[in-house]
Design a protein around this nucleic acid. Structure first.
Length: 475
RNA sequence: GCCCCUAUUGUCUAGUGGUUAGGACGCAGCCCUUUCAAGGCUAAAACCCGGGUUCGAAUCCCGGUAGGGGCACCA
């Protein structure tokens, strides 16, 4: 049985990379019929942001990523919050000390910078406390010094492991530090907690960012020290910006929830992010979560980092919007419609704009002209392809005005029939008739919908009023 | 500084020794058309560099270069 986990630390918002990590972990579990677990890694007390736990829940929910076990969903492997597992870590660290794979270190934080300020970084750091004897240790304890627990990296040799994305990775043990496992405040470091928890929670596949690739040998040494079986590893390449720099909230790059606020559909974001570093092997690009679960294959994850393209997200968002049922789109659109559309059939308006909406946030702009006719210049009536000139426009509007005024059935179809036959009678291109009307009704170079669609929505009175205004502009 | 990883059009990618190097976004053009969009079609656009191996390398090996990551009582 596959068991994967998403283990964010509650230090802020849910960024794009986190979303993808969660998604891949979810997909890998679900496609194998396994379980997806949420674990909160709040071992750094100074960096905890309590509200961000809510943001994580919310983000996952929005994305449709449902976890089988988590802080609020016990599956028998809890607790799922690391700060509630302190006793477990302590016990395990003592086991390691007993076995000789870890030791107490009484050095103070201030001691190390001095070491490092020699200019070169100390690699394969071997702490002086490594070789303290029992009396020395007791003496330090008696002096009231709070120790940390450090991992004892074996001298010499190399550690290797297999990663499903990056293949075989080998690192010399001399490169590995005697890292801190348990801090002096009794909290574990990530390095320790993730190993202990992953094992205790039965995690079979560890999915996480590439930044952990070179510390994974240390974790493997820990598994070995405990006599535990290693999990499978799937390290993910980073998501970066198109200019090659990294996404950062500080530089104004949006989080997952920001993107939703910006008018992108959660399912479009999920779809897009899935494609950043993975492809199905065929030419499909449009995926909803269930299809993604079917199609996903961890062996097709890419090694190199991928740049986040707003252009492509925007396009994909449009695809998802178009794939929505008219009812669903209408409901969404409703929350974006501005004031002043009371007289307009919003259901019809939604039908008109669904295919033209690539981003929900642009809806207010798209429909603004229905509320207020923008001021425009008369040369807006010029249109070469429609053979529309100032003269023809004036003529058309003059002639069409009484026809419209006497039209009883005010629908797109009847309006179109009327104007089409008018153009035929006059020997004009349909466009020559439609262009000035559409222009007068929208006051814009382009509009969602043509002349008759706009007229039908605006209603007879408003249509005639806007045509009168157009005539004033032309004469 | 030491170690690890990566490298196909502007971007996301397909490609596992023999392909006119395929698709998508974006860009440009055409068609459709009641403007725009959507849709359809077409175009321009790529194998980081240098050595090998091979009859033959985007593909395998080595070396550069460039980019990313790690070396915290952060995760």
């Amino acid at each position: 049985m596959f068991r994967t986990r998403f283990a964010p630390s509650p230090t802020g918002y849910m960024h794009i990379g986190n979303l993808r990590t969660a998604l891949y972990a979810y997909l890998i579990a679900k496609q194998a019929g396994g379980a997806f677990i949420l674990r909160i890694e709040d071992t750094d007390q100074s960096r905890n942001v309590p509200e961000s736990v809510a943001a994580i829940y919310n983000g996952l929910k929005l994305a449709g990523i449902e976890y089988d076990e988590g802080p609020d969903k016990d599956g028998g492997y809890g607790p799922y919050v690391q700060s509630q597992r302190l006793g477990i870590y302590k016990k395990h660290s003592e086991e390691l000390i007993k076995k000789g794979h870890a030791y107490y270190c009484f050095c103070q934080k201030e001691d190390k910078p001095a070491l490092e300020s020699t200019g070169e970084r100390v690699q394969g750091f071997r702490d002086p406390c490594r070789d303290l004897n029992a009396e020395e240790i007791q003496a330090k304890f008696d002096a009231g010094i709070l120790p940390v627990v450090r991992q004892r990296i074996p001298e010499g040799g190399e550690s290797s492991f297999f990663d499903h994305v990056y293949g075989e990775i080998a690192i010399d043990n001399s490169q590995l530090d005697d890292q801190v496992l348990l801090k002096s405040d009794g909290f574990p470091t990530y390095n320790f907690a993730n190993v202990v928890d992953d094992h205790l929670m039965g995690i079979t596949h560890v999915i996480r960012g590439q930044e952990y690739l070179s510390s994974t040998p240390k974790y493997n040494l820990l598994y070995e020290a405990f006599g535990w079986e290693r999990p499978e590893y799937i390290h993910l390449p980073h998501i970066i910006k198109e200019d090659g720099s990294k996404l950062s909230k500080r530089k104004g790059d949006p989080s997952y929830e920001d993107l939703v606020k910006m008018g992108y559909l959660p399912e479009a974001i999920v779809n897009y992010v899935a494609l950043l570093g993975w492809n199905p092997g065929d030419e499909r690009e449009f995926f909803l979560l269930p299809e993604l679960t079917q199609a996903f294959d961890m062996n097709r994850i890419n090694k190199s980092s991928a740049a986040f393209s707003f252009d492509k997200l925007r396009w994909l968002n449009g695809e998802h919007i178009r794939a929505l049922s008219p009812e669903t789109f209408h409901e969404l659109a409703l929350t974006y419609y501005p004031q002043g559309l009371e007289k307009i059939d919003l259901g019809k308006l939604s039908q008109l704009i669904q295919i033209r909406t690539e981003n929900l946030a642009e809806i207010p702009n798209l429909v603004a002209f229905f509320v207020d006719l923008p001021s425009y210049e008369s040369d807006l009536f010029l249109h070469q392809k429609s053979k529309s000139t100032l003269e023809s426009s004036l003529l058309v509007l003059q002639q069409v005005q009484p026809l419209l005024a006497s039209l009883d059935e005010w629908t797109n179809e009847s309006l179109f029939a009327l104007l089409k036959s008018f153009s035929q009678e006059q020997g004009l291109k349909v466009g020559t008739v439609m262009w000035p009307i559409r222009t007068a009704l929208s006051g814009q170079e382009t509009s969602p919908g043509g002349a008759t669609e706009l007229a039908a929505l605006l209603g007879k009175d408003e249509t005639l009023r806007r045509i009168r205004l157009g005539l004033e502009k032309l004469s």
